[in-house]
């Protein structure tokens, strides 16, 4: 800046007014963007991802009598742009016409429940259940989680669900 130039000064009131306008515009733009981005980020976080369809376990005649068998079932989960079909484990026990299906996810922290000679055990933290899924001991807060099932013709179907972990009452995780 050379010396012969003159600096133009505005009155303090006018400066403050123009400054407020600038602040108004920038906060307006920020708000519109912020609200949009907030909705965009939260949107899928609040929706239920479990499609909750009935899924095939297998033919009833393929389930052996008395002995618990492990079965893979295909579970659909909506996750954004895709519907992901992945496998989950269930335990199936058939006693004559009576069928029981348990989720193999431990109600404690979600490890996979294994079979023992006279019941079930979770290898992660040592929870144990009877052959009927009753809680015997260990850190698990409740018995094994029973799943709804139905028999269509000779086909066994199950409604796979997720349950809240670490609580005494079985409650669907939503």
């Amino acid at each position: 800046m050379t010396t012969e130039m003159t600096d133009e000064e505005l009155s303090p009131d006018r400066r403050r007014f123009l400054g407020a306008l600038i602040g108004l515009i920038s906060s307006g733009i920020t708000t519109v963007l912020g609200v949009t981005i907030g909705r965009y980020t939260i949107a899928p976080a609040l929706s239920n991802t479990n499609v909750g369809e009935w899924t095939d376990v297998g033919l009833l005649e393929e389930i052996p009598e008395g002995k618990p068998v492990k079965r893979n079932v295909v579970v659909s989960q909506d996750s954004g742009w895709g519907r992901f079909n992945s496998q989950r484990l269930v335990w199936v026990i058939r006693k004559g016409e009576q069928v029981t299906v348990f989720s193999a996810a431990c109600p404690h922290l979600g490890c996979t429940i294994n079979e023992t000679s006279n019941g079930f055990i979770c290898p992660c933290h040592g929870s144990a259940w009877s052959a009927d899924g009753e809680r015997l001991g260990g850190p698990t807060p409740r018995g094994m989680d029973m799943l709804d099932h139905r028999v269509e013709g000779d086909l066994l179907k199950v409604k796979y669900q997720y349950f809240k972990q670490g609580v005494a009452e079985k409650e669907e995780a939503g």
Binding site: M5, D7, E8, L18, I25, I29
Partner: peptide
């Protein structure tokens, strides 16, 4: 030889244009 500072009048002009674009 007039000299004006960037703030506030030029910055406000910039912001008004930015607002229109937005």
């Amino acid at each position: 030889h007039r000299v004006e500072r960037f703030y506030p009048r030029q910055l406000l002009k910039d912001f008004v244009f930015v607002l229109v674009v937005f």
